[in-house]
Design a protein around this nucleic acid. Structure first.
Lengths: 125, 125
DNA sequence: CGGTATCCGAACCGATACTG
DNA sequence: CAGTATCGGTTCGGATACCG
């Protein structure tokens, strides 16, 4: 074995990222964690997301057990979304990520600038 | 204001995910954190990634300042990759994510099963 | 209001072939 | 060995139109 062995954590982290790691899922979870409960169009306006993507994202999050969907049979209909306990438990790892981002994104931006400048020089632009 | 206000953390987390949140970036970082230094084809074999994607992923990670690229001008060429200090600092938030995954993926799987079963019943399959 | 259905361009990603 | 170039299939994601 050695390098060719699959690292066990890799698959797990990949799994979690493929489920809740996309742009809209994360933003929905953060929004719900901040406001507690939001209606469909409140989320839509808040995130600037298209109806189609919000619908898809919410259904996946509900399917994964991270989001509650409560529908009131009124006219016009009213649907509220909130985090499940599982959804809430995801907030902490997400917060860690956010803290790292706040702290290190400037460094990334600087690294990018330096890298791009290097390559422009190399290619004689 | 209120709900229509953009949550400041949202954009930051979105930014970090759009940079290092994709499948292969994360797996490369984990691999390098485990083995310290790896050559191109070692990473390729280890991750089961295509040459094209590994090349692109490594270039982005190098550009973002998370990965060091060291090239030896030999024949055949030898290129080694390792984490920068910035790359190492990303390991901890990643580990949090991994721990959450290990702990909660079974719950997600169960939630999915339940959800799918519900819908099959509803649609009379 | 809270969706679904359809269309369409853009991006992703693997497979393959080629290069220094 | 370490890439780049090209191609084709899949997914992403917004715009629009329509429905209960």
């Amino acid at each position: 074995m050695g390098i060719t062995a699959q690292c066990t954590d890799c698959k797990r982290i990949h799994d979690v990222l493929s489920r809740v790691g996309d742009k809209w899922s994360v933003l929905v979870i953060i929004s719900l964690s901040q406001y507690g409960t939001l209606r469909f169009n409140e989320l839509k306006r808040h995130l600037g997301i298209s109806q189609r993507m919000l619908s898809r994202t919410l259904r996946e999050l509900e399917r994964d057990g991270l989001v509650n969907r409560t529908q009131y049979p009124t006219i016009p209909p009213k649907v509220e979304y909130s985090l499940t306990p599982l959804g809430h438990s995801f907030k902490e790892p997400l917060r860690e990520l956010g803290l790292w981002a706040v702290e290190n994104l400037p460094k990334i931006d600087k690294a990018r600038e330096a890298f791009d400048e290097m390559n422009e020089v190399k290619e004689g632009v």
